[in-house]
Write a protein that binds this DNA or RNA. Structure first.
Length: 693
DNA sequence: ACGGTTGTAACC
DNA sequence: TGGTTACAA
């Protein structure tokens, strides 16, 4: 019998809180008549009744499972109530659930450090709160204990047949002869029960929780008794618990690693892992994973609860399974625009509510090609620095798609004209924004500073221009250079079978394509725009004068945008098919070759032209050639220039007015700091209760 | 090629 | 870094 060589109990009090079938609860709060009924939330009703993404416990009793389709669920449980996920822009929209999740996080973060682990899960480090409680109001001194607390499950607690379970739990919680660690856990149980009651009272949502000495055990415990219950894992119960615990049910072991443990090591429970030495596990799974496995076999997990209440990224995506696969460029552009619109909306609201800005835009697609079963893995994701503004994000995402498509087609040596293309398509598209950092407090005054200067903006002796002038020339073409036009494309894209199922019938019309081509020509011919750090639209929000400018810019931009063009058209015309697509690509191609390059350079990029976005026949524009006066005009041609705040020479700060220098410095070194929420701070706006109920 | 969408993290 | 892959809910 192997002996644990390390202390398995670290004395912390950690809780994992898990909302019960959360999406269902959100819908039931919106429609209280659904409460108590077998209910499921379903998205996309068209195909076999849509896919279930949340199932109420009543429906689970009838055998309804998450993996089912709406039709199957009806079959298994004819009385089931199916509620559809809201749809916006032709895709599922999860905003109501996100907002509801935020309500919960706000409440749970009142005690101790709180980590938002997902839309409906939270970790809490309650160590301090438990210690304080133990000193001030220890359970053993209580004459009355709340019902919710004594409904706790305590692993390893013996309850004999004749016993009153709740009384046994009460006695365990209030034992005076318990170890210090167990007393702390008991306090944790009180605190969590209280938090759960607050959640229920303020949101009408129930949740389940696990209280243990580390995250892993807390997570494990929260799933053991659902719904609306909590489970305590005393240290003394850990060994027995893990001994028979199915390895595949452990977090991180539900996938390939867990399968490998089963088939390669013949392991089925966590306890089975104990027979393997740390070295052996490291040898097979690598140093980190090996040690991690050795530790979890012993109930050891040192992961800290991160104090983070907000998501680290935002994304918007959609799949186009089977016959819906996108087979034309126009349909890809349409859907990218929809996805970018949603993403942009969420970025704007994150900025408004949390004072954060995202720095990276990533586009990912999945594509298939007949005859290559692995092709769906080969479409690369591409990213660039993120410029705020819906139109810009749309433009940039499209450019990233081009870059990815070119790589993808390169993989297949794909040189045919796509009039012959029946054999590939795009089966998924997504755009996401990451590297989201707080705007340092006081930035407002920086925005104001810019706003006073940028609209008139042409005089070169102003600090903003100095920033740009100083920075841009000093930047060697870097790996953040991007903006690729797929110059090898000579494809036609025939219309796909389906896929554009709303309001995009005119995408392939010649005059639209003409417009788009003009846009491309313009892009290639114009010098690029130099944007201020961050972006002008964001700045505009806090300042009227900028706002006017922004509107003008947006308007100008929109005249080139797909949407604006679409609106001018009369509905009902049919797509013209591949002919117009060809025209578009020809124009695109010509534009590319007529002026060999059009790219974005992030100032001060430190690596030279090795960017994966750049092909060898693309030349990088020397930054010096940028006409700084272009800052005032033609924003729709502006996509070429933006720069990364991290890469600007900080010495330029000295040239700014003293009153904003300090603030500006924080732009250059965005500090990673735990996101602390205090009620009354502006962050709490993020957690505004859902008004829709 | 129907379990969709969204998010995190490790690894290279 | 960016990009890929895996995992989870």
């Amino acid at each position: 019998m192997p002996v644990a060589r390390r202390e398995t109990c670290d004395g912390r009090v950690i809780a994992h809180v898990d909302m019960d079938c959360f999406y269902v609860q959100v819908e039931q709060r919106k429609q209280p008549c659904l409460r108590g009924l077998p209910t499921a939330v379903v998205q996309y009703n068209s195909y076999k009744g849509g896919g279930l993404i949340a199932v109420s416990y009543e429906a689970r009793k009838c055998g309804v499972k998450r993996s089912m389709r709406g039709d199957e669920a009806k079959e298994a449980c004819p009385q089931i109530q199916l509620v559809q996920v809201p749809v916006a822009r032709g895709k599922a929209n999860l905003n109501t659930y996100r907002n509801a999740g935020s309500e919960v996080v706000t409440i749970l973060s009142r005690k101790g450090r709180c980590e938002r682990a997902s839309i409906d899960e939270v970790y809490l480090d309650l160590t301090d709160a438990a210690q304080t409680m133990l000193m001030e109001t220890p359970p053993e001194s209580m004459e009355h204990v709340e019902e919710e607390v004594i409904r706790s499950h305590v692993l390893g607690l013996q309850v004999k047949d004749g016993d009153d379970a709740k009384e046994e739990v009460r006695k365990w919680l209030c034992r005076s002869d318990a170890s210090y660690q167990e007393k702390l856990l008991a306090c944790g149980a009180f605190i969590v029960a209280d938090l759960r009651m607050q959640v229920l009272k303020e949101t009408e949502f129930t949740c389940s929780a696990g209280i243990a000495h580390n995250k892993m055990l807390a997570k494990l415990a929260s799933a053991m008794n659902k719904p609306a219950q909590q489970t305590v894992v005393p240290h003394s119960s850990v060994e027995g618990l893990l001994e028979s615990f199915p390895i595949k049910k452990m977090k991180q072991l539900g996938g390939k690693l867990g399968t490998s443990l089963q088939s390669d090591l013949g392991i089925n429970t966590v306890g089975d892992l104990l027979q393997f030495s740390e070295e052996k596990l490291q040898q097979r799974y690598g140093i980190n994973t090996g040690t991690w496995l050795w530790n979890i076999a012993r109930g050891i997990s040192g992961e800290e609860v991160e104090g983070r209440l907000l998501p680290k990224s935002h994304g918007s995506g959609k799949t186009f399974p089977g016959p819906q696969a996108l087979k034309t460029f126009a349909s890809v552009q349409h859907w990218l625009n929809e996805l970018c619109e949603e993403l942009s909306e969420r970025l704007e609201s994150d900025m408004d509510q949390n004072k954060r800005i995202a720095h990276t835009l990533t586009m990912h697609a999945r594509a298939y090609k007949r005859g290559d079963l692995d092709s769906h893995k080969k479409f690369p994701s591409k990213s660039c620095s993120l410029r705020y503004g819906t139109t810009k994000i749309q433009e940039d995402a499209l450019t990233l798609f081009h870059a990815g498509l070119r790589d993808f087609l390169g993989v297949f040596n794909f040189k045919t004209h796509s009039s012959e293309n029946n054999n590939w398509g795009i089966t998924a598209l997504s755009v996401s924004a990451s590297k989201i950092v707080p705007i340092p407090s006081g930035t407002h005054s920086i925005a104001k500073y810019f706003s006073e200067r940028l609209p008139s903006g042409s005089s070169s002796n102003q600090p903003v221009d100095n920033v740009i002038d100083e920075v841009a020339p000093s930047s060697p073409p870097g790996e953040n250079c991007w903006e690729v036009i797929p110059n090898e494309l000579q494809l036609e894209y025939p219309e796909e079978d389906t896929g554009m199922n709303h309001s995009n019938a005119c995408l392939d019309q010649p005059d639209l394509l003409c417009n788009l081509s003009e846009k491309v020509d313009g892009l290639t011919e114009e010098p690029s725009l130099v944007a201020p750090p961050g972006n002008e639209e964001r700045m505009a929000q806090s300042e009227p004068s900028r706002d006017i400018l922004t509107k003008e810019l947006r308007h100008a931009s929109d005249t080139y945008s797909l949407k604006a063009v679409e609106k001018k058209k009369t509905a009902g015309k049919k797509p013209q098919g591949s002919c117009s697509i060809t025209k578009f690509f020809n124009n695109y191609h010509n534009a590319q070759s007529s002026f060999e390059q059009k790219n974005v350079t992030n100032a001060q990029g430190s690596h030279s032209a090795s960017s994966s976005y750049l092909s060898n026949n693309q030349v990088e524009m020397p930054p010096q050639e940028v006409d700084k006066n272009s800052i005032d005009c033609m924003p729709q041609r502006s996509q070429a220039w933006s720069y990364n705040i991290d890469e600007i020479d900080p010495s330029i700060i000295d040239e700014l007015p003293p009153e904003i220098q300090d603030e500006f410095r924080t732009w250059f070194r965005p500090r990673k700091r735990p996101h602390v929420v205090r009620r009354g701070s502006n962050i709490t706006q993020y957690f505004r209760p859902d008004k829709s109920r």
